[in-house]
Nucleic acid binder design. Sequence first.
DNA 1: CCATCTTTGTGCACGCGTTCACAAAGACAT
DNA 2: ATGTCTTTGTGAACGCGTGCACAAAGATGG
Lengths: 252, 252
Amino acid sequence: MATGRTHRPATRSRGIPEATVARLPLYLRALTALSERSVPTVSSEELAAAAGVNSAKLRKDFSYLGSYGTRGVGYDVEYLVYQISRELGLTQDWPVVIVGIGNLGAALANYGGFASRGFRVAALIDADPGMAGKPVAGIPVQHTDELEKIIQDNGVSIGVIATPAGAAQQVCDRLVAAGVTSILNFAPTVLNVPEGVDVRKVDLSIELQILAFHEQRKAGEEAAAEAAVPAAARKESTDQGPDGDVPAVMPA
Amino acid sequence: MATGRTHRPATRSRGIPEATVARLPLYLRALTALSERSVPTVSSEELAAAAGVNSAKLRKDFSYLGSYGTRGVGYDVEYLVYQISRELGLTQDWPVVIVGIGNLGAALANYGGFASRGFRVAALIDADPGMAGKPVAGIPVQHTDELEKIIQDNGVSIGVIATPAGAAQQVCDRLVAAGVTSILNFAPTVLNVPEGVDVRKVDLSIELQILAFHEQRKAGEEAAAEAAVPAAARKESTDQGPDGDVPAVMPA
DNA sequence: CCATCTTTGTGCACGCGTTCACAAAGACAT
DNA sequence: ATGTCTTTGTGAACGCGTGCACAAAGATGG
Ligand SMILES: NC(=O)c1ccc[n+]([C@@H]2O[C@H](COP(=O)([O-])OP(=O)(O)OC[C@H]3O[C@@H](n4cnc5c(N)ncnc54)[C@H](O)[C@@H]3O)[C@@H](O)[C@H]2O)c1
Ligand SMILES: NC(=O)c1ccc[n+]([C@@H]2O[C@H](COP(=O)([O-])OP(=O)(O)OC[C@H]3O[C@@H](n4cnc5c(N)ncnc54)[C@H](O)[C@@H]3O)[C@@H](O)[C@H]2O)c1
């Protein structure tokens, strides 16, 4: 980024810590499930278990929203669903465009999870002229030429990028220029955006690599600790112990 | 060197901080691009810009791997690609199974990014008997009944879950019981796993909700700051200013 | 109205991650 | 060799997030 001295303390997140914001959808999901089972109230302990977090953390998270619980009883499920929904901005409708209707884009378009919570697929956009007009998930694909018009006509502020990596930055620039201020990026690229635009990325490849790291570590420790009972002999190759600091040959 | 000291804190992640591990794939991707352009060396500043991070952070990250740079020059691209690949465990082959070959599962199976880095789709598994044998992305889908056998025969330790949420925990349990110790979960559910099993989740819905939160905040601040030039009048309903603390009516 | 019991809300301490800033290392020219 | 210039590697400070532990709040029963 290297923009000049923004002299404020980072992002200024309306008082609610970013880590908390990231967990609110998790709580909301658990609460919605309880709501559907007509459970009237829930304790921090129970809800925390359902959401897979620490109960103290959950209580602290909720404390940022206000004092919505009742001591000795717990939290009113319906009320909390409403409060979190409102806090997350889910009480309003968010039109979303998906750009790049290939394998992934089509899967996203077909995904039912969108409509369930305030999000509505306003348009599907692709650069392939052959796709124009073809319906995917009941919505006709539109050509990239109309991107700007679509954004403006529908008041779209959230865009999803599912194009190949090479096209992502260009698509991103156009989205931002047209008025989009939040982007969910599935392409494996770093997107450069002006200040005020939020980008979140979903990167399958990175997730797998992180898993591989831990997997390798587990295998290494296992081999180092118990030099017996090798459940199923695999991973051979170099295999030079857990701390492979042998510097090989530094190519100067 | 860093082998001694058994009174280490908590989980002991092989010395490399988790946050660093999560960035290594990012660096690797940038380095691979440089490598393909035959760039011999790169400075921390350049590489950091390409990866979208702070240069000091990048140097510190690399310092956990060892002293692979040359002062006054930078880092040798090829060497660093190798070192990071090795650290992430990408020098070996990781067979992966995908369970749940619906919209998303099929897209994942077709994704080329798997094979590019050590990951290989060993099998596609689905519960629908009608899909058994049908090829997706050139690989015949196999029935869930064979899950255990597939895992064992191929020595699979990484599994991807792309089933509906309701089936995810059950599938997870079977994968774990069969020997899988790393899971990438696309279903919107919290997975319970025994210790030693890593789970990472990719949750589109959560990402969108986080974006919506910030989007709403931006709209709120904008409306509060400049009470003029309302780009496109939307968001009506209650619309009670940025800090909606009006407690409505607490349903007791 | 009082006692007891449950559960929230939060003060506090601690550890992790980020960033600054700079000494040291080495390349390169003279 | 010696000096200059570039860039690394890291000490140190700081801020954020987490989790413990407990006082206060309020429900519930007698
Ligand atoms: N498929 C997956 O499971 C998966 C997983 C992780 C990441 N990704 C990433 O998601 C992206 C899409 O993956 P995919 O498998 O759907 O690829 P794909 O090739 O099937 O689809 C890409 C689509 O984008 C369109 N497109 C290309 N340039 C465009 C442009 N400038 N504007 C608009 N549309 C454009 C193409 O016409 C095509 O329909 C890729 O970047 C991929 O790396 C995919
Ligand atoms: N499609 C998306 O873009 C998207 C995005 C985010 C999350 N998700 C999540 O990913 C999951 C899959 O989404 P989808 O759109 O592909 O759904 P889908 O209904 O198209 O596919 C689900 C597949 O799983 C199979 N299945 C069901 N139970 C199974 C079991 N016990 N064992 C093995 N296979 C089983 C079904 O036969 C089906 O083929 C869902 O949980 C969804 O919420 C999807």
